[in-house]
Amino acid sequence: MRPPGHRDRATSPVVGKALEAGLVVLFVGLLTSTLFGNVVPAYRAAAGQELAERTVAGAADRIEGSVPPDARDATVRRRVDLPDTIAGAAYRVRVDGRWLVLDHPDPRIEASTRFAFPDRVASVRGTWESGGEPTVTVRSADDGPVVVLRS
């Protein structure tokens, strides 16, 4: 026979199912918010950082390769391929002294590399905006080749 007051021990099935459902919804919500709040943006930024490093290295290689060998006094105009966006945002590639620097709106993404020009290169300047048509132009001036980046 049922002991008296047994109804206090158990909850009704409906409430039980509601608890289960609530628990699952809570779990899903917690997991989603954790993933999309912390994990996914962090990895997106990390992947963007890798892409930025590779972009800058490739761009610097292309720019250095555009300088014609010693004996020639030619003007070179060369188009360069850059990714349209990094981590979903437009970015800028600029020259800072003898460094090529990539500026990105996300503060976690930053890349730069030093140029390896021959000594005779007089100066380097210019900026590239992503999404344009980046070109590098090498002109010969009195004191040596001048390298200009144009979008």
Binding site: A10, G16, E20, L23
Partner: peptide, 13 residues
């Protein structure tokens, strides 16, 4: 009822 009771810890696990 014991089914509702037993399922909750199962869900939690």
């Amino acid at each position: 009822m014991s089914r509702a009771q037993a399922n909750l810890p199962a869900v939690a696990v």
